[in-house]
Nucleic acid binder design. Structure first.
Lengths: 212, 212
DNA sequence: CTAATTCTGTAGTGGTCGATACGGAACGGT
DNA sequence: ACCGTTCCGTATCGACCACTACAGAATTAG
């Protein structure tokens, strides 16, 4: 992607933008994206109107459309923003599958009841509020859900290879179980459950993780 | 509510309707309600338009409004129809709390993946698609959710009294856990999970039901 | 029969939806 | 200074939303 040729005087700054020519944008794109994420997180995809979004972002409709495209593109951008800042933050360097999944569940419980943003999981809200959306959007959301399940499954499989998960364990089935736990936590968090209540369910669910 | 006085000639038929006077309704109210339920179940409250509903019910808008009131009233009627025909069908005569909850979970798994209606739990779809709805509607939905949790909690408490649940068991916490399981099952079913997969999760979740 | 009543279908109502046309403002290049 | 470019704010656009006015059809009461 990088063309080493043609670098006129930019000897120092590599990522320097080539100075856009027209009138500069009067708002912070990342801040506006974060505001849009909060609206979608709270009201869902179909439940959030352009009016809601522009009000929260402090931007007029033409600026929104110029910066992000249509409503669906903006939503996809907020999904990536959400995944990058929340969903994909699990560090993978836990010694055993059980510890990795414990960390994953605790991390989820933290986010689901965290302050400074709406309750529950944005991807789950999106899932249930995109029934009339385009197949493209539904496909992206389905992929995100499948990724979460895949993360659990692959970590269990690695535990099987490394011996910290007893042989004969059904990785698919165990991943399904903990995926269900995460889904249940997300729903209860949306319903107003406390962080403490979620952690209790996490603890209980972890007690039946198979050990050698 | 009943006035024993003034019963002219209705000696035999007690529930006989007093023969309405105007033009008779040209559609079956229960069938229309069931069709509306399917639409709301699939698309959610905000996602289902009056157009979708009238098309599925085979009825024109004025007939819909005359028979059910506004959209929210129709939705509340479908919620009751759903609860009466699906959610409230658990027979309570199981000898132990574990068996009762096992039956409850298996029954949920059956409904969530049943044929002849959309996947997943209508109440959960309603929950996530009523963010902009009236407080009255949100309150009704919250009550329905609380009832499900209460059913589990009370059955566990009864098990504690009758001795089939070991003393010291935290009924609140255990009920929260199985409520999360049900929520997770509902989400996975909506996502296309098989009945078999759901049953596997149910089996796994039941293995950590405390026994004396 | 006529009158009263209740439902049905047509054809809309005002309001909000997502998305835009347009003219002026703010910038860099020359 | 002047021009091309890009963004901003106003003021919409047609489409769809939940909902209904109205007139005629179907029934019962008398």
């Amino acid at each position: 992607m990088k063309k080493p040729t043609r670098a006129p005087q930019a000897a120092v700054a590599v990522a320097e933008p080539p100075k856009p020519r027209g009138r500069p944008r009067s708002f912070d794109r990342e801040a506006a994206l974060d505001a849009a994420m909060q609206v979608f997180w709270e009201k869902g995809f179909e439940g959030a109107s352009i009016n809601d979004l522009t009000a929260a972002m402090g931007v007029n409709p033409p600026s929104l459309y110029a910066a992000f495209g249509d409503k669906e593109s903006l939503f996809l951008a907020t999904i990536e923003h959400y995944a990058a800042s929340r969903s994909d933050q699990v560090c993978p360097d836990h010694p055993t599958a059980k510890k990795a999944i414990e960390a994953y569940l605790r991390f989820k419980a933290d986010i689901l009841t965290g302050s400074g943003h709406p309750r529950g999981c944005m991807l789950m809200v999106a899932f249930f509020t995109a029934a009339n959306a385009s197949p493209r959007l539904q496909q992206v959301l389905a992929m995100k859900r499948a990724q979460a399940r895949e993360f659990l499954k692959e970590r269990i499989k690695r535990g099987l290879r490394e011996g910290d998960v007893p042989a004969g364990t059904d990785a698919e089935e165990l991943a399904d179980f903990y995926t269900a736990i995460v889904g249940g936590l997300a729903q209860q968090a949306r319903d107003g459950a406390t962080h403490r209540s979620l952690l209790a369910t996490v603890e209980r669910a972890l007690t039946l993780f198979p050990e050698p």
